[in-house]
Design a binder for these strands. Structure first.
Length: 645
DNA sequence: CTAGGGTTAG
C-alpha cells in the first residue's frame, strides 16, 4: 500500500523535474524516506537522470555504482542515456561493465540500446562484437534487437549483413521490413531496396515514405516522382520528403511546385516542408518567392517556429537582403538559438560586413549562447572576407584557449584563406605546413586560388604539385593554374594545360547563372545553344558592351579566358559568361530602376566583375551577384567587396 | 518501469 502511494508520487515528482538540482532534491527525499534502497525507485531515478536531464549522465552513473546490486533496468537506463548523448562510446563501456559484474545478464533492451550506440558512431567492429554477444545470449533474432542490428549494418553500409539478419528473423514486422529497405538505400543498393519493397505484402505510409526518401537521396528523382504518384495516401512527411529531396538535388523549381501543390490541396505544411522550401529559395536566390512565403508565414504564425525563422534569416541573407535578415533576427528576442546567430553571422560575412559579424559574435557570447565549431567557421569566414587579419588570428586562438573547441580542417582552411586572400601567400603556405592535421585538397585549393588572384606562378606550381598527390585531375585546379599563367602572359603554359585537359578528358565545370524576373527564375549557361531567351540575352548583351565601350572606355579583360587563342576570340569567349547573359536579360526584361539579382555557381571572373561595376553606373541600376563565395553589390560603379574577393 | 523504421535550418 505504501509503495503504491510512493510510486504515484515518485512518478509525478520525476516527470516534473527538469534539472539536476531538482533531481538531487528528489534523491535526498528518497534517502529520507528510506526508498533509496529500493531498486524500482532508484531505477526510475537513474532513467530520468540519464535521458531527460541535460548533463546528468555522470550523476546517473554514480547512482548506479553506489547501489549495492544494480539490476538490468538500471544498466539499460545508463546504456540508453549514453547512446543518445554526444559520447555514445560510453554506452558500450556501460554495457561491458554490466557484463563484467557477471550477476546481471543483458536482455533485449540492453542489446537494442548498445547496438543503436554502435550505429550512431558507425563502428562496424563494435557492431560485430555486440552481434556476437547477442547470438551467445540467444537474442540475435529478437524482433527489436534484430531491427536495430539491421539499421546498424545499414549505417555501416553493409547491405549484405543487414539482409542476412533480416532473413534470419522468424516473423519480421513492418518496422523490420522498412529498416531493411532503408539499409539497402544507405548502402547505395537501390535495386535491392526496390526488390524488397516489391515483395512486401503489407505497406503502410511509412514504407512508401522510406522509398521516397531513399530515391531522393540517391538522386533518382524520376523514381521518387513515380512512387509519389502511385502511393495510396500522402501524409505531410511524404510532401516534405519531396520538397526537401528536390531542394537538395538542385531542382528548385520542382521543389517550389510541390509546395504550391501542397497548398492548393489545402493541406497544412509542416516545419520540415517550410524549411525545405525556404532552403530552395536560399539556394537559388528566389527573392520574390521568398518574400511571398514570408508574408504567408507571418499571416499564419508559422514564423514563430524557431527552425522556420532561422531558415527565413538564411533565405534573406542568401537572397541578398541582409537588412531583412536582421529584421527577422531582431524580431525573435528571447529564443535565438546558436543556429539563428550563426545564420546571421554567416549572412553578414557573405556581404563583406566583417566588423558587424564580429559584433554579433560578441553579442552572442555575452547573451550566454556558447559558440560551436560552425559558429567559428562563419566568424573566421567573415574575417577573411573583410580583410580582418588580426581579428581572425585573435578568434582562431580564442577558439581553443577559451572554448576548448579543437579546430577542424575547415577552420584551418579559413585561416589559409585569410592569409592568402590578403596576399600573405608565404605565410599561408607556412601555416599549412605547420598544421597539426594533414591538409586536404580543399586547403591547397584555397591557396591556389589566392596565388591566382595575386599572380604568383612559382608558388602556384608548387601548390599544384601537392594537389597532384591528392586530387590530380580536378578541373577547377587546372583552370586556376591556367588563369595564373594567363595573368602573366605565359600562353605556352596555358596551352599545355589545355592540351592535357583534352588528353585526360577533363571537362571544366560549366558555369551557370540564374536571374529572377517577375516571380520566375531564369537560368543561363556559358556556351549554350542560341535559342529562346538566349537569343534575347545575346542581342541585348552586344548592345550593352557597345555602350560600355562608348561611354566608359570599357576594355575586355581576357586573362581569365582559358585558352591561348586570338585576342578577338578570347573576348568572344569572355563575353559569353553566363552572368553577363543573365545581366543582359535582366536589363532587357526588368522595369527601369529595379534591382538585378544574379546567382552564380562559380566565382565571378574579373571581366564580368568590371562589366557589372560599369553597368551599375552607366545604366544607373543596382546589381547584386551571389557567387560561389560571397555577395557582390554593385552600385554607382563600385562593388561592396572593394575588389577583394 | 525502458525499445526498432521516414522528412529538420547555420
Amino acid at each position: 500500500m505504501s509503495i503504491a502511494i510512493h510510486s504515484h508520487h515518485c512518478h509525478t515528482l520525476l516527470t516534473s523535474c527538469k534539472n539536476l538540482r531538482g533531481l538531487i532534491q528528489i534523491h535526498a527525499s528518497f534517502i529520507k524516506s528510506g526508498v533509496d534502497t529500493n531498486s524500482y525507485f532508484t531505477g526510475k531515478l537513474i532513467l530520468q537522470c540519464a535521458i531527460s536531464i541535460p548533463d546528468a549522465l555522470p550523476y546517473a552513473r554514480r547512482l548506479l555504482l553506489c547501489f549495492p546490486h544494480p539490476d538490468a533496468f538500471m544498466f539499460n537506463a545508463l546504456i540508453r542515456g549514453y547512446s543518445e548523448s554526444h559520447e555514445p562510446h560510453n554506452s558500450v563501456a556501460a554495457f561491458v561493465e554490466m557484463m563484467r559484474k557477471g550477476l546481471v545478464f543483458p536482455d533485449s533492451f540492453s542489446f537494442a540500446f548498445v547496438v543503436k550506440a554502435a550505429a550512431s558512431f558507425q563502428s562496424l567492429r563494435t557492431g560485430f562484437q555486440m552481434h556476437c554477444q547477442a547470438l551467445k545470449h540467444g537474442l540475435d533474432s529478437h524482433l527489436f534487437v534484430a531491427t536495430t542490428l539491421i539499421s546498424l549494418y545499414g549505417e555501416c553500409r553493409c547491405v549484405e549483413f543487414a539482409r542476412k539478419v533480416f532473413n534470419e528473423m522468424r516473423q519480421p514486422n513492418l518496422v523490420a521490413w522498412n529498416a531493411v529497405v532503408t539499409a539497402c538505400f544507405r548502402g547505395n543498393d537501390v535495386a535491392a531496396a526496390k526488390e524488397i519493397f516489391d515483395k512486401m505484402l503489407v505497406r503502410d505510409h511509412m514504407s512508401w515514405n522510406v522509398m521516397l526518401a531513399g530515391y531522393t537521396k540517391a538522386g533518382e528523382l524520376e523514381s521518387a516522382k513515380r512512387v509519389f504518384s502511385e502511393m495510396p495516401l500522402k501524409d505531410d512527411v511524404s510532401w516534405s520528403t519531396m520538397i526537401v529531396g528536390f531542394a537538395h538535388n538542385g531542382s528548385f523549381n520542382e521543389a517550389f511546385s510541390y509546395f504550391k501543390e501542397l497548398r492548393r490541396a489545402e493541406m497544412r505544411p509542416n516545419e520540415v516542408s517550410l524549411t525545405g522550401v525556404l532552403s530552395a529559395c536560399s539556394q537559388s536566390g528566389a527573392f520574390e518567392f521568398g518574400k511571398t512565403l514570408h508574408g504567408f508565414l507571418e499571416k499564419t504564425g508559422y514564423c514563430w517556429i524557431i527552425s522556420v525563422r532561422n531558415a527565413l534569416i538564411d533565405m534573406y541573407s542568401r537572397c541578398g537582403n541582409v537588412a531583412m535578415a536582421k529584421l527577422v533576427f531582431e524580431g525573435m528576442p528571447e529564443k535565438r538559438s546558436i543556429v539563428s546567430w550563426t545564420s546571421m553571422i554567416a549572412g553578414l560575412a557573405m556581404h563583406g560586413h566583417g566588423e558587424e559579424a564580429i559584433r554579433f559574435f560578441n553579442e552572442m557570447t555575452q547573451s550566454g549562447v556558447r559558440p560551436d565549431g560552425i559558429a567559428f567557421i562563419s566568424l573566421l569566414y567573415a574575417c577573411s572576407h573583410g580583410g580582418l587579419i588580426k581579428e581572425g588570428e585573435y578568434y582562431f586562438s580564442k577558439m581553443k584557449r577559451v572554448y576548448h573547441i579543437e579546430p577542424e580542417i575547415e577552420h584551418y582552411g579559413c585561416m589559409v584563406d585569410l592569409y592568402g586572400r590578403s596576399g600573405k601567400l608565404k605565410k599561408a603556405y607556412n601555416f599549412i605546413c605547420q598544421m597539426p592535421i594533414s591538409p586536404t585538397a580543399i586547403v591547397w585549393r584555397t591557396l591556389l586560388g589566392a596565388c591566382s588572384s595575386h599572380g604568383n606562378t612559382e608558388l602556384a606550381e608548387q601548390v599544384k604539385q601537392r594537389l597532384n598527390e591528392l586530387d590530380p585531375n580536378n578541373s577547377g585546379d587546372l583552370v586556376l593554374l591556367s588563369n595564373v599563367y594567363a595573368t602573366v602572359g605565359k600562353w605556352k603554359d596555358v596551352a599545355s594545360i589545355r592540351k592535357s585537359m583534352i588528353v585526360h578528358k577533363i571537362k571544366k565545370i560549366t558555369g551557370w547563372s540564374m536571374v529572377e524576373v517577375g516571380k520566375a527564375m531564369y537560368k543561363f549557361t556559358a556556351g549554350e545553344k542560341k535559342k529562346g531567351i538566349n537569343v534575347e540575352a545575346h542581342e541585348k548583351l552586344k548592345e550593352v558592351i557597345l555602350r560600355l565601350k562608348d561611354e566608359s572606355g570599357y576594355a575586355p579583360e581576357v586573362a581569365n579566358a582559358l585558352y591561348d587563342i586570338e585576342e578577338e576570340e578570347k573576348e568572344d569567349q569572355v563575353s559569353k559568361h553566363s552572368e553577363k547573359l543573365a545581366l543582359a536579360f535582366a536589363l532587357a526584361r526588368l522595369s527601369k530602376g529595379a534591382n538585378i539579382r544574379i546567382v552564380k555557381n562559380l566565382r565571378i571572373c574579373r571581366d564580368c566583375h568590371a562589366v557589372m561595376k560599369l553597368t551599375s553606373r552607366v545604366y544607373g541600376v543596382e546589381i547584386l551577384v551571389r557567387d560561389r563565395n560571397r555577395f557582390h553589390s554593385f552600385k554607382d560603379g563600385s562593388c561592396s567587396c572593394r575588389d577583394y574577393w
